[in-house]
Computed example of a mutant assay.
Amino acid sequence: MKIDGIIFDIDGTLWDVRDEIALALTREAHNQGHPEINFTSENLTSVFGIPPKEVADLFMSHLPPKERYKLMEDCGNHQIKLVESLNTDRTYPGVKDTIKKLAQQYPLFIVSNCPSGYVRAFMRRNKLSPWIMDYEEQGRTGLSKVENIKLVMERSRLKSPIYIGDTKGDAESAKKAGISFVWASYGFGHVDNPEYSIDDFRELHRLLEQ
């Protein structure tokens, strides 16, 4: 497979922190006087990968738009603090070692529909910063995943990178950005007829050598 870079999604692709994030978001919503708002790993699974404002529209539709988006932003900040304080390794098996091996052959990147600061917190927590050349977040740019992929490609002058993700939205974003996609089938979502797929993150290195 001839590529000049690898772009990763995070949640459902590199790690699984659904339980911790559900607890953090629920706690922040309750602390701000909204006990009716409850997040669980189950209801979060269906919305991972969509922009925070859309998550707010789904879970907080009873609140005025300005209030719900501010609350979602505060929940996102609480989520980042939780990520930084994790005392257990929540990455999928082989993620850290595989990333270090891949970085010897390809430039590596992350693009996620996450709050601003989440990617940096993820990299610091897992000591992966030295191997990730660049990243982008929906919470930082306000852009769609498609546009953020293109932004990272433009900054690093990539012509034919590949995107690794776990949801239909990831697959569609890669297609719209004009790049190939690898479905992480062990993640949160389902993709019909993916171009490539892996059942374990450690399979990625072998797939790219084909």
Rank of each mutant, 00 (worst) to 15 (best):
M1W: 03
K2C: 03
K2Y: 04
I3W: 04
I3K: 14
G5H: 07
I6G: 07
I7N: 11
T13N: 06
W15I: 06
W15M: 13
A24M: 08
R27D: 09
H30N: 15
N31S: 13
N31K: 13
N31A: 15
H34F: 13
P35L: 00
E36I: 00
E36G: 03
I37Q: 03
N38S: 10
N38G: 02
N38V: 14
F39H: 07
F39P: 09
L44D: 10
S46E: 14
G49Q: 08
I50Q: 05
P51C: 06
E54P: 00
V55D: 04
A56N: 11
L58C: 02
H62P: 00
K66N: 08
R68L: 06
R68I: 03
M72T: 02
G76W: 01
N77T: 00
H78M: 05
H78R: 12
H78S: 07
Q79C: 07
I80G: 09
K81W: 04
L82G: 07
E84I: 01
L86K: 07
L86A: 05
N87F: 03
N87R: 11
T88R: 13
D89W: 07
T91W: 03
D97V: 10
D97M: 04
T98N: 05
I99S: 11
K101V: 09
L102H: 15
Q104K: 15
Q104N: 13
F109K: 01
F109P: 10
S112C: 04
C114S: 14
C114V: 13
C114Y: 01
P115S: 08
P115F: 11
S116D: 14
Y118Q: 02
Y118M: 09
R124W: 10
R124V: 11
R124F: 10
R125H: 10
R125C: 03
L128G: 13
S129A: 12
I132L: 04
D134K: 11
D134W: 09
E136C: 11
Q138N: 15
Q138M: 09
G139E: 12
T141P: 12
G142C: 08
N148S: 01
I149M: 09
K150R: 13
K150V: 03
L151C: 01
V152F: 04
V152Y: 02
E154F: 02
E154K: 12
R155F: 06
R157D: 14
L158T: 11
P161H: 02
P161F: 04
P161R: 00
I164Q: 02
I164V: 14
I164M: 00
G165P: 11
T167I: 10
K168P: 00
K168A: 08
A171K: 14
A171H: 14
A171F: 08
S173T: 07
K175W: 08
G178E: 08
S180F: 06
V182K: 08
S185H: 09
S185Q: 14
S185K: 15
F188R: 05
G189C: 08
H190C: 01
D192C: 09
D192W: 03
N193Y: 11
N193H: 12
E195T: 12
E195D: 10
I198C: 13
D200Q: 14
E203Q: 15
L204C: 09
R206C: 10
L208A: 11
